[in-house]
């Protein structure tokens, strides 16, 4: 795996770690006047996850998986 792929997977790992936002456990600050910071932070994690998976797909896509799937099929059924 090249550097881009490693960084993309590293980003996902980092997200898994920082998902545990223990420092916000008792923080009731409101963001934008209505969203508790603990919820806002986790929403950001969701958005970051989407970005992270886009990066993994861009840089660490298992490119030969389709070729492998198509070659040497056992049966000849439609399914």
């Amino acid at each position: 795996m090249r550097t881009g792929g490693k960084l993309a997977w590293g980003f996902i790992l980092l997200l898994g770690i920082v998902h545990w936002d223990f420092w916000l456990w008792s923080d009731r600050t409101l963001v934008f006047g209505f969203m508790p910071v603990g919820l806002f932070y986790q929403v950001c994690i969701s958005i970051a996850a989407a970005i992270g998976w886009a990066l993994v797909i861009k840089f660490a896509w298992p490119k030969d998986v389709e070729r492998w799937a198509d070659e040497g099929r056992d049966g000849g059924g439609e399914a």
């Binding site: 998902h19 994690i45 969701s46 996850a49």
Partner: peptide, 18 residues
């Protein structure tokens, strides 16, 4: 309370796609 989102939703966003 609001912690349910981190407990079930954002974690699922990471883990399901994983």
């Amino acid at each position: 309370g609001i912690g349910v989102y981190g407990l079930m939703a954002s974690s699922s966003g990471i883990v399901h796609s994983l």
